[in-house]
Design a protein around this nucleic acid. Structure first.
Lengths: 68, 68
DNA sequence: GTGTGACTTCGAGTCCGTC
DNA sequence: GGACGGACTCGAAGTCACA
């Protein structure tokens, strides 16, 4: 399993933990809903800026997304 | 100071700590030497795969690059 | 509420050189 | 050893219609 897939799983995990939908996360992070979907399914090689946008939107420290 | 600049500073800090040049880091990570330079100077929005390549090359856990 | 294919634009990433 | 520049390719970023 590669980095993108691991990260995507983490995003989904933390998002569900916070009880938000992909749609709300999209709004909170100012990213597209379908883009979030792709990320969670390990299809996108996200940039550091996107990583931080998502972390902020989920009010979760960036490091938690890399604990795998 | 934005995310890219913070990350770049961290890369430089850890690289120097390990006593390697930008050129050797470029070799170790299979990235271009000018790209490493740009990253350290906060000019590039690196992808998650690149982040892991650099972390591996410096034999340093990814999370350490985000302790700022 | 989520997944997918298709699409365009701009920057990620490479390679050359110079200072 | 490192910064910077031009020129290049390919993929990240961002959006849409449809399922």
């Amino acid at each position: 399993m590669d980095v993108k897939a691991e990260y995507g799983k983490k995003v989904r995990e933390i998002r569900k933990l916070k009880g938000v939908s992909q749609e709300s996360l999209a709004d909170l992070s100012a990213l597209d809903r379908t883009y979030i979907s792709d990320i969670e399914n390990g299809k996108r090689n996200v940039s550091i800026e996107t990583i931080f946008k998502i972390a902020e939107a989920l009010k979760t420290p960036v490091v938690e997304f890399f604990e795998f």
